[in-house]
């Protein structure tokens, strides 16, 4: 579902190689010419590491992102909503698979990546550490969280690394349904009873700010942005994308008759943009560093799923070995 400018969240900054200046210059020239880089091509180690980190964080986000929505599958209010939600959650799983597959072209194993997630060593989008308290949250997630994800992901379709760009194209095609089904849920609630409208408003109140945080730290704080831009892994800054999201989403909230929970929000006719209030970055950093409302629960759920699935993985491998041995003997 999404990445967060989390590429800027690595613990140790990666450094440009110095020994291979010529190759690095030729590499940059290819990028400047909008050529795509493919797995077997030479690439600076820092480029490779940046991509591994960003793509795997993105993959983890998809996988963890299945949890808050999965929470409502059994309680979806109709069979139609349930079928849609199952399909959406299944898509998130699929997006995780496309992305792990893209990351693996850079020489890391699936096992390593999953181990990093389960050990709590890998980051994933902060948004999935918030709880889904009501059915309206499923609407708000589709509308806002997937809306923010689309805003973030469309530029990555033109990323310089071929496998990541191709995975993104596939994901973006599927993501549009996610956002529309979410908005439809919100619209149904907004046109419903007072209690339903209140539920929709409450969901917007709780998801608005975390959705804005999905674009990552402000440009001033984003430490690797410039390098990622030069490498064309990133095309727009966090703040540019965030502003674009605000500008497109606020009118949608107005259409729903809901209030955006930002008192400072106002339209600036001169700049033709909405101006918004300050983001509480302390909340963002707290959630990213493991202290959000559901961080522990999310990781525990992933670990339990992994542990409980161990016998299936082992049995399937044993079955495959047995059949391979029989085929060899025959």
């Amino acid at each position: 579902m999404y990445t967060q400018g989390l590429d800027s969240q690595g613990s140790e900054p990666v450094r440009e190689e110095r020994d291979s200046a010529g190759r690095a210059a030729r590499f940059q020239a290819r990028i400047d010419a909008e050529e795509k880089i493919e797995p077997k091509d030479w690439m600076p180690e820092a480029y490779r590491q940046t991509l591994v980190r960003q793509i795997s964080q993105h993959a983890h986000s998809e996988i963890v992102g299945m949890l808050p929505e999965g929470n409502w599958i059994t309680r979806a209010p109709s069979l139609r909503r349930k079928a849609v939600l199952i399909a959406k959650v299944q898509d998130e799983g699929g997006h995780g698979m496309y992305l792990y597959s893209a990351a693996e072209t850079l020489g890391v194993s699936r096992e390593q990546l999953v181990a990093q997630l389960l050990a709590g060593a890998a980051k994933y989008s902060s948004i999935f550490n918030y709880p889904t308290l009501t059915w309206a949250d499923i609407g708000a997630i589709g509308w806002l969280v997937d809306g923010a994800a689309i805003m973030n992901q469309i530029p990555i379709c033109r990323c310089s690394y071929g496998p990541y760009a191709r995975a993104m194209v596939r994901i973006c095609k599927e993501e549009s349904f996610h956002q529309r089904q979410g908005f439809e849920i919100m619209l149904t609630l907004a046109r419903g009873s007072d209690a339903q409208r209140a539920m929709a408003q409450d969901a917007l109140n709780r998801w608005w700010w975390p959705s804005l945080m999905m674009f990552g730290p402000s440009d001033a704080e984003s430490k690797h942005s410039a390098q990622s831009m030069r490498w064309k892994i990133k095309r727009f800054s966090n703040d540019e994308l965030r502003q674009k999201f605000i500008d497109t989403t606020v009118p949608q909230a107005h259409f729903l008759g809901l209030a955006v929970p930002d008192r400072a929000l106002r339209w600036n006719p001169a700049s033709e943009h909405y101006e918004s209030g300050p983001i509480d970055w302390s909340e963002f950093h707290a959630v990213l560093s493991g202290h959000g409302p559901c961080n522990r629960e999310r990781l525990e759920a992933r670990r339990a799923a992994h542990d409980r699935g161990a016998w299936v993985r082992e049995a399937a491998a044993a079955h495959a070995r047995k059949h391979a041995a029989r085929a060899a003997a025959a």
């Binding site: 299944q90 699929g94 698979m97 496309y98 597959s101 893209a102 693996e104 699936r110 496998p163 191709r166 995975a167 596939r170 993985r313 399937a316 491998a317 079955h319 495959a320 059949h323 391979a324």
Partner: peptide, 20 residues
């Protein structure tokens, strides 16, 4: 070519590819 999947054997790879 569309991507890759992990699977214990070819049969399972087809099933995973179908799902993914």
């Amino acid at each position: 070519h569309v991507g890759s999947v992990h699977a214990a054997d070819a049969r399972m790879a087809i099933e995973h590819a179908r799902d993914v």
